[in-house]
Structure formats: structure tokens, C-alpha cells
């Protein structure tokens, strides 16, 4: 089927299936799934600028459904979500401007591809290292009788000492987040959100692959809350990103609508599944996903984009 806005020929069933898969991922991991959606659109010959903008639009719809599910399960810290939205919006605009500059220079596809590969690999390696280390330490403590069984739902992280040091930074104003159970500087939250926003505007999606780990490791938010809050925050920031990219001519809303039909049902399944897994296991299961995205980008680079 021909999509006139982005001048692409794509089978709508393929789009719905991609949407379904990333819907499950989004509901389960709290990430928009742009590391799959972006490369999947590139695979069909859609330019990176359209892949980025269209993915953002599709994520708005998907995140509304998933965030609603997580809110019902008590996995959303509204106060944190609203604060983060400010930083993300500013960062997303910077990312979108970078895309515009690359578009004008005529090398948007090659530069975004290389950045995507580096970022996706980096995230996968870090999360593999951290979650395995955490699982080993939890198992060790369980054997020594310090944790009540390996199935404890309490969130542990090998990065905890760094997180505690970051939480000790007393830069005014300090914010208390009763839902997440932490007190942290407003600026730390804003920096984390801004960095996520830059990636969101530049690589597309909600950049949950950066923000979700940052919320867990840097801010010290429990994984289940990070997943839900991230999705809630993405609704606000991705809406802004969609409008910004649409004005710049980077959104094919028809592709986004078709992809979202699959994502709507996938997100419901993913959100329910989070209740059956502990934090480190969710993070370990996340590891192959950015690698799949990186592999697709490498494939499109080597073969000239199309299957």
C-alpha cells in the first residue's frame, strides 16, 4: 500500500504486526519501542526523519493506553512525571533541531544510523552487566538468609551506591517524591529528563531505552514505578515531539495510525505481564531488544535499506 505523505510502499499488515510487538514491549518494559519501530520503518525504505517523527506520533497513542493500565496498577508517580515532562520537552526540541540540521546537510540517514547503533549497543551492554550482577548479589543474599527467597519483589540494583550518592546531592530545590519514596534535587530530575528528550527528538520514540534505565540507576526509582511513570511522561513529551516534527514535515500520520492498531492490544498484554516479574529480571529481559534494533540498522546500512 502507498503512503503518500512519506512516499513509501508498505504492507499495512506488516505495520500492524510491528505495532503489536512494540505494544507488548512498551507495556512490559515501559519503553516506546523506538529501537524496534525506527529500524522497522527504515527496513521498509522510510527516511530516518519520517521514521523518527512517525514513531513519535504512534507512541503518543500507545503510551496513552499503557499509561492508563499502569496508573490502574499504581505504577505511576504523577509528580515525577510532570517534572520530567519539562526537561524532556526542552531536550526533544534540541534533538528535533539536530535532525533538521542534518536534513539540510543531506546526511540525516547515515549519521542517525551510526548514532543509533552506538546507543543501542551501549544500553544493551550496560543493562546486561548491571542486571546479571544484581541477580547474582540477590541470589547470594538469599542463600545467606538476608532476602526472603529469590522471588522477592523488592527492587535491587548493583548501581545502588552511585544512586545513593546522586540522591545525596543537595542542590536547591530538593523534591520529595512520596510515591517513589525518595528525596532528590529538582535539577537531577531535569538533567535526566533533558538527556532523554534529546535522544527522543534525535532517534525518535519516547527514548525510554535511555530514560527508563536512568530513572532506575540515576534517580533510584523502583523499576515498576519507573516503567509506569516513564510511559505517563512519554504521553506529554511525545505529544509535543509529534507536533514539533509534524510542523517540520517529518510525520506520516497514516503510518502511525496503522501501527497503533496493533500496539493498542499489545500494550494491554505487556502491562499485565509486569506484575509477574521482579525488577532485575525485567531489566535482563530488556537486553536483547536494543541489540535487535542495532542489528536491523546495520542490515539497512549494509544492504541499502530495503529487504
Amino acid at each position: 500500500m502507498f503512503f503518500p505523505i512519506s512516499h513509501a510502499h508498505i504492507n499495512p499488515i506488516y505495520l500492524a504486526v510491528v505495532g503489536f510487538v512494540i505494544g507488548i514491549l512498551g507495556g512490559f518494559f515501559g519503553v516506546g519501542g523506538s529501537f524496534i519501530a525506527g529500524p522497522a520503518l527504515r527496513l521498509m525504505g522510510v527516511d530516518w526523519n519520517y521514521a523518527v517523527g512517525t514513531d513519535l506520533a504512534h507512541i503518543v497513542g500507545k503510551s496513552i493506553v499503557a499509561a492508563k493500565q499502569h496508573r490502574a496498577l499504581g505504577n505511576v508517580d504523577l509528580k515525577l512525571g510532570f517534572i520530567m515532562a519539562f526537561g524532556t520537552i526542552a531536550g526533544a526540541e534540541c534533538g528535533a533541531q539536530l535532525i533538521q540540521a542534518l536534513k539540510r546537510a543531506g546526511n540525516v540517514n547515515i549519521v542517525v544510523s551510526y548514532v543509533a547503533i552506538v546507543v543501542y549497543f551501549g544500553i544493551a551492554v550496560f543493562m546486561l552487566w548491571e542486571s546479571r550482577k544484581t541477580l547474582r548479589s540477590v541470589r547470594g543474599r538469599s542463600q545467606r538468609g538476608l532476602v526472603k527467597g529469590a522471588k522477592s519483589k523488592k527492587d535491587h540494583s548493583a548501581f545502588s551506591p552511585v544512586t545513593r550518592n546522586i540522591q545525596r546531592l543537595k542542590i536547591w530545590p530538593m523534591i520529595t517524591l512520596p510515591t517513589s519514596g525518595i528525596r532528590i534535587s529538582f535539577w537531577t530530575i531535569l538533567v535526566v529528563a533533558f538527556v532523554g528528550g534529546v535522544f527522543s527528538g534525535f532517534l525518535g520514540g519516547g527514548a525510554g531505552y535511555i530514560r527508563m534505565p536512568s530513572m532506575v540507576y540515576v534517580l533510584g526509582i523502583p523499576t515498576h514505578l519507573a516503567v509506569g511513570t516513564d510511559l505517563f511522561e512519554i504521553v506529554i513529551s511525545a505529544s509535543y515531539g509529534t507536533i514539533s516534527h509534524a510542523i517540520k514535515g517529518n510525520v506520516d500520520i497514516l503510518i502511525a495510525l496503522v501501527m497503533h492498531t496493533g500496539a493498542a492490544i499489545g500494550a494491554q498484554i505487556g502491562a499485565v505481564a509486569t506484575q509477574y516479574f521482579a525488577g532485575p529480571k525485567i531489566r535482563l529481559a530488556f537486553v536483547p531488544l536494543p541489540l535487535i534494533g542495532a542489528a536491523i540498522v546495520i542490515y539497512t546500512l549494509l544492504t541499502g535499506h530495503k529487504l
Partner: peptide, 16 residues
């Protein structure tokens, strides 16, 4: 841009 955001949000609510 406005229509795009309304369409995707509307579709999300309807499909949910």
C-alpha cells in the same frame, strides 16, 4: 500537526 495529534489520541481512546 493538530489533526495528527487529535487523530492518534482519539484512536487510542477508541481502541482502548
Amino acid at each position: 500537526a493538530g489533526v495528527a495529534i487529535l487523530l492518534i489520541a482519539g484512536q487510542a481512546v477508541v481502541l482502548d
